[in-house]
Simulated assay, not measured.
Amino acid sequence: MYLSELQLDHYRNYEQVDVHFSPDINVLIGENAQGKTNLLEAIYVLALARSHRTNNDRELIQWDGEYAKITGVVQRQIDHIPLELVISQKGKKAKFNHLEQAKLSQYIGQLNVVLFAPEDLNIVKGSPAVRRRFIDMEFGQMSAKYLYNISQYKAILKQRNQYLKQLQRRQAKDLVYLGVLSDQLAAYGAEVTVARRAFLQQMEKWAQKLHQEITKEREVLTFKYQSQMPDDQLTRDVEGIYQQFQALYEAQQTREVEQGTTLIGPHRDDVLFLVNGKDVQSFGSQGQQRTTALSVKLAEIDLMKEQTGEYPVLLLDDVLSELDDLRQTHLLKTFQNKVQTFLTTTSLENVKKEIISAPRVFTVTNGTVTVADAAIN
C-alpha cells in the first residue's frame, strides 16, 4: 500500500496543504521547526487516530483553530481508499470510503505505518510502559480483534481500579461486583496475553534475521515476554490463561483492595530484549541497544506484510544522522524498492545517492510544501 495524496486543514502549523506523493521514496527537506515532523505526524495520525508525540489532541489543531482535518488516499493492490479524520474539542470523527465509523477501532488498519524516530531507542532503554504502548500500537494496526480486546481491557481496568479505590476508602463493600469486574478483566486479559505472545514470536523471527545480518552473525537477538504469571502458565491457551487470571485475582484480592489498584494483568507486563542471552537494556552497549531498536523496528515491516498481505508505509523522522554507515545502509536496504518511504532531513547531504534512487524531494518552509528541483548528489 502507499499514500498517494494528503490534505491538511488547520493542522499544527499548516493552514492548508495538498500534497501528492511518490509511491517510492519521498524526501522532506527543511530547517528545523518548519513542519517536516508535523507532516510525518499527520500521516501517522491519519493511520492510527492518535499522535506519537502528544496525548493532547488540542495540540494538533492550529493555534486559535476550532478543528484540524486530515484527508488522504490510500492505494492498495486492488483498490484505493479515501480516509478522513477530523479532530475537534468534541472528539474525533473518522471516515473511510466516505462512511463515518462508529468506533475508531473500525477505522484503524486501513493505512498501516511504521514510524522510526530517534526516540525509538526508548523501546529498548525506556520503561515497560513504553514497550507496552509500542506493542499495542503496532499490533493494533494488524489485528482488529487485538485492538478491540486491548481497548475493552483498558476500559474494564479503569472501572475496576475506580471500584478498588472505593473499596479501599470504604465507600463501597460489594465484593460480588468486584468479582464480576475481575471475571471480565480476566477474559480480555487472556485474549491480550495470548495475542501478544503470538505476535512477538513472529516479530522475533524477523528481528533475529535482521540483527544477525547487521552484526555479521556475532549476536543473536531473542525476546522474552515478562508477566506476573509463571512461564509455564503463559504457554497455555486462552481458556487456561483466563482461569489462571481468575485464580490470581482471587488470591490477590485483599492486597488489591488495600492498595486500591489492579496488581495483575497485561497492563503490567513487559518484553525483554536479549542479546546472546543477556538483557540488552541492563548489560548491552549503546551500539547493541541501537542495533536492537533498529532490528525491532525493521521487523515490523515484514511482519505487517506477513499479517496483512501489504507492506506498510515507512516514516523516517531524522534518523539517518543518528545511525552510523553500517546501520544506515541496512536501514535503507531494507525498504528500497518495496516500501513507500517518507524521510525528513535538514540537508540532502545526509542522503546517499548510491542507496536511494529517484526520490521525490519536497521543500518544507513555514507550513508550506513544494516540490523541490534539488537532486541528491
Score class of each variant (00 low, 15 high):
residue 156 I to S: 09
residue 108 I to G: 09
residue 154 K to N: 13
residue 170 R to Y: 07
residue 99 L to Y: 08
residue 131 R to V: 07
residue 160 R to Q: 04
residue 90 K to R: 13
residue 101 Q to Y: 00
residue 140 G to L: 05
residue 115 L to T: 08
residue 121 L to W: 07
residue 120 D to Q: 09
residue 100 E to R: 09
residue 102 A to T: 12
residue 161 N to P: 01
residue 81 I to T: 10
residue 167 L to D: 03
residue 149 N to Y: 10
residue 87 I to K: 01
residue 89 Q to M: 13
residue 116 F to C: 03
residue 80 H to K: 15
residue 146 Y to S: 10
residue 135 I to G: 00
residue 83 L to W: 05
residue 157 L to R: 00
residue 151 S to L: 07
residue 153 Y to P: 03
residue 150 I to E: 02
residue 134 F to H: 13
residue 82 P to L: 07
residue 96 F to G: 00
residue 140 G to Q: 04
residue 108 I to C: 07
residue 166 Q to I: 07
residue 144 A to I: 05
residue 142 M to A: 12
residue 171 Q to H: 03
residue 115 L to D: 11
residue 127 S to L: 10
residue 132 R to H: 04
residue 107 Y to W: 00
residue 131 R to L: 08
residue 143 S to N: 05
residue 128 P to R: 04
residue 82 P to T: 08
residue 140 G to N: 00
residue 90 K to E: 14
residue 139 F to M: 15
residue 159 Q to N: 15
residue 154 K to F: 05
residue 95 K to F: 05
residue 91 G to E: 04
residue 97 N to T: 07
residue 95 K to Y: 08
residue 168 Q to I: 04
residue 150 I to Y: 12
residue 135 I to Q: 07
residue 92 K to M: 06
residue 90 K to L: 10
residue 169 R to E: 10
residue 116 F to M: 15
residue 85 L to C: 05
residue 171 Q to M: 05
residue 98 H to Q: 14
residue 130 V to P: 11
residue 168 Q to A: 11
